[in-house]
């Protein structure tokens, strides 16, 4: 009995306990590592990664077959197909991952247990954010890496820089959607509500806003500069236009509005898209942090 107690006492490393809370960065890294490890073991991660890679593979194979191995390099259906795929899969993955992050922990009591440790709420939020971001990065790299491998093997002339841009921008898109998901997660009462809301947000961003904008543009006879400005409000559109701009240094493929953007802003488009994307990353996360600091974790 007593010996057990002594051994338990000996488990401590003998440092004085007073004021031994580790720094913010250390805690964020610890929590991020935990979250990352947990994510890559989770079913959703495996499912999304496999789906992403397989669909990307299919797109690459089909377009390689269609070009008949002519090895031509340009912006083609491959890139378009991959952009389309990213637009569908990455936001869904990031939104649902983010939505589950806080709400399900709150539901399981994990959140209050975690917050009973010497950590701050911001550390928990950012730790989870970066951990999930790491998982999303892995997923995107594996998916697009597989596609690039197929394209290289099939002798396609796709530019490596284009693939790298696509990967990088997909990651930024994932970060923005993760922010939004985390915000939803801090607001939702239950994990199921959070996930449902995030799927709704996904539908809205992917389909509803674009279709609405299309209808609006026709009905209200929007000028092309208005159309372009409005489309910047949707992070998915920003991702798409940025990818095209990076791949081709020109948005003229997007018709008059894209031509207007290229001529009006030229290479400043990188900054414009960058600022929009950063806003979509930072603002929801900041609101999430405020909500998190005010809400009971129980």
């Amino acid at each position: 009995m007593t010996s057990a107690a002594l051994r338990l006492g000996a488990a401590s490393d003998g440092l004085p306990a007073e004021g031994r809370a580790p720094g913010m960065m250390t805690n964020i890294v610890t929590i991020a590592g935990r979250e990352l490890r947990e994510s890559v073991r989770a079913r959703w991660f495996v499912l999304y990664t496999v789906a992403f890679a397989v669909l990307g593979l299919a797109i690459s194979m089909v377009s390689a077959a269609a070009t008949g191995g002519s090895g031509l390099a340009s912006f083609g259906r491959t890139t378009a197909g991959l952009i389309n795929l990213v637009l569908l899969v990455v936001p869904l993955m990031a939104l649902t991952a983010g939505a589950g992050a806080i709400a399900s922990d709150r539901e399981r009591g994990m959140l209050q247990y975690l917050l009973a440790q010497p950590v701050s709420r911001l550390e928990v939020l950012l730790g989870k954010y970066f951990g999930l971001a790491g998982a999303l990065l892995a997923c995107i790299c594996l998916g697009l890496g597989t596609c690039a491998a197929v394209l290289a093997l099939k002798g396609m002339g796709t530019k490596p820089s284009g693939v790298l841009w696509l990967a990088g921008l997909s990651f930024l898109l994932a970060l923005s959607m993760l922010s939004l998901g985390i915000l939803i997660s801090t607001l939702a009462r239950r994990a199921s509500v959070a996930v449902g809301t995030s799927v709704f947000a996904w539908l809205t961003l992917v389909f509803v806003t674009d279709l609405g904008l299309m209808a609006g543009a026709i009905a209200l006879r929007l000028r092309i500069e208005q159309l372009f400005a409005l489309s910047l409000a949707n992070p998915l559109q920003v991702f798409k236009m940025w990818s095209l701009h990076a791949a081709d240094a020109s948005l003229d493929v997007l018709g008059p509005a894209g031509l207007y953007a290229t001529e009006e802003f030229g290479n400043r488009l990188h900054w414009i898209f960058g600022v929009c994307m950063m806003a979509w990353i930072v603002v929801p996360l900041a609101i999430g942090a405020v909500v998190m600091s005010r809400r009971s974790p129980v």
């Binding site: 057990a4 107690a5 051994r7 338990l8 006492g9 000996a10 488990a11 401590s12 490393d13 440092l15 031994r20 809370a21 580790p22 250390t26 805690n27 610890t30 929590i31 935990r34 490890r37 440790q117 010497p118 950590v119």
Partner: peptide, 26 residues
């Protein structure tokens, strides 16, 4: 083991001796 290591880190401890920590509670 992971749980113990995780919370040790959050508490700013060096990696603890698992046997001692877990042994103490059987």
């Amino acid at each position: 083991s992971e749980a113990v290591r995780f919370f040790s880190r959050l508490k700013g401890l060096r990696t603890p001796e698992l046997d001692a920590v877990l042994g103490g509670v059987g």
